[in-house]
Structures are given as structure tokens and as C-alpha cells.
């Protein structure tokens, strides 16, 4: 199980500016008709990256300077709306390993957690500083330490936060809880019998 432990993440960042970015924007519903997640990375922010006439927009994911970025910097209430795990899968399969933002929809951040993407929280001031730095120095790598809950870039260190239950899960490689849950099969069967319905 040790290979599932997530303690450190490093990479360049891409800022996705704006609040209340919903999962319909992250991945439009028409791409949910595939019965596997395999191609979801191709559809990340599809309708924002492509104009109605088929040309590429100036969305950050289209800009050469952000190619290869593996950390996404977002605003408030990121991932609100639909429970579609396709949104988290699109982020993962595009190549994003962590998200840093001010707040997240609970279903979206839970979906990310379940597939190994930490959704980290920073204060608005730090969020703005990180966005500014990513725009000015897109190649500057960020180093995320989930043990100390800190982020280091260009010589500065910032506090980040994560629910402690999720920190535990990442550090111990149990972010997908299936095995953990299955271990309690006897208790589950007992609860099934005890329930009043």
C-alpha cells in the first residue's frame, strides 16, 4: 500500500481565476456519455477553451506558458454543482496532482480526495499572491508538503490546510477508502440487521 501514500507534490502551477466555477464548466454534460473515464482529460474546461467558432480561446490551459503545470490554483467554491466525478477525473487525467484554492464544493473535493488529488485551502491573501506569482513566473515550481501542511515557492513558505481526516488518508495511502471500509465487513453486516428498516 505504500505506493499510494501522498506526502509531497511538486510542480508548476496554472491559475484558473474566478469564483463559483461549476462542474458543468469543468466538464460539460455531453462528455459524460462515455462509459469510461479514459478520455476525460481531453474535455477539461472544453467549452471555455474552445470558442463557438472552433478557435482556441486565451483560457490558461491553452497558453504555452502553462503547459505541463501540475498544480491548479483556484478561487472560492470551486467545483460547485453536479456530483459528476468526471470533473475530478478530467482534472486528474489532464495531469493535475493537487489543487490550491480558497474553498471547494464538498462533493467535488471528496471526489478529488477519492482519486488522490488533495484540494488544499489557503487564505484569500495567499491565494492572490500565488495567482500573481503563477502569472508572472509560470515555471517556478511549488512544493507541497502534506506532512507539515506547507507550500514553498521561490523561497517563501505558506501555510495550507486540509481536513485532518484527509491529511491522514493521504499520508497513509488510504484516500480511496474501499479497503478500509471492507475491513469492517462483520460490523457492516451487524448494522444491516440492526437498522429499523
Amino acid at each position: 500500500m505504500t505506493n499510494l501514500e501522498i506526502k509531497h507534490i511538486a510542480g508548476a502551477s496554472v491559475p484558473i481565476q474566478g469564483n463559483d466555477i461549476d462542474t458543468d464548466r469543468i466538464i460539460p454534460a455531453r462528455f459524460l456519455k462515455e462509459i469510461t473515464f479514459e478520455h476525460m482529460g481531453n474535455y477539461l474546461f472544453h467549452d471555455e477553451r474552445m470558442a463557438p467558432d472552433g478557435s482556441q480561446t486565451d483560457h490558461p490551459l491553452n497558453l504555452p506558458k502553462f503547459k505541463g503545470a501540475s498544480i491548479m490554483i483556484v478561487g472560492n467554491n470551486f467545483g460547485c454543482g453536479s456530483s459528476r466525478e468526471h470533473a475530478a477525473q478530467a482534472v486528474l487525467r489532464y495531469g493535475i496532482k493537487a489543487i490550491i484554492g480558497e474553498s471547494y464544493s464538498e462533493i467535488f473535493s471528496g471526489n478529488c480526495k477519492n482519486i488522490g488529488i488533495p484540494t488544499l485551502i489557503v487564505t484569500p491573501i495567499i491565494q492572490k499572491a500565488l495567482t500573481k506569482m503563477a502569472l508572472a513566473f509560470p515555471d517556478a515550481p511549488l512544493h507541497i508538503d502534506l506532512e507539515t501542511l506547507t507550500l514553498t515557492t521561490s523561497g517563501n513558505t505558506y501555510p495550507i490546510s486540509l481536513p485532518k481526516e484527509w491529511q491522514h488518508a493521504f499520508l497513509n495511502g488510504t484516500w480511496n477508502a474501499t479497503y478500509t471500509l471492507k475491513a469492517n465487513i462483520a460490523l457492516i453486516k451487524q448494522k444491516d440487521q440492526e437498522l429499523p428498516y
Binding site: F37, S83, I107, N111, A177, T178
Partner: peptide
């Protein structure tokens, strides 16, 4: 509401974390 990974957990274990 839950995501697809959680759907799998519910199918397999009838529980969630």
C-alpha cells in the same frame, strides 16, 4: 450526492467514510 468512486464503495460495502 456522491461521486462514482463512492458509488462503488456503497455497492461493495454499503458504507462511506
Amino acid at each position: 450526492g456522491i461521486g462514482t468512486s463512492e458509488v462503488q464503495m456503497v455497492l461493495e460495502t454499503q458504507t462511506l467514510a
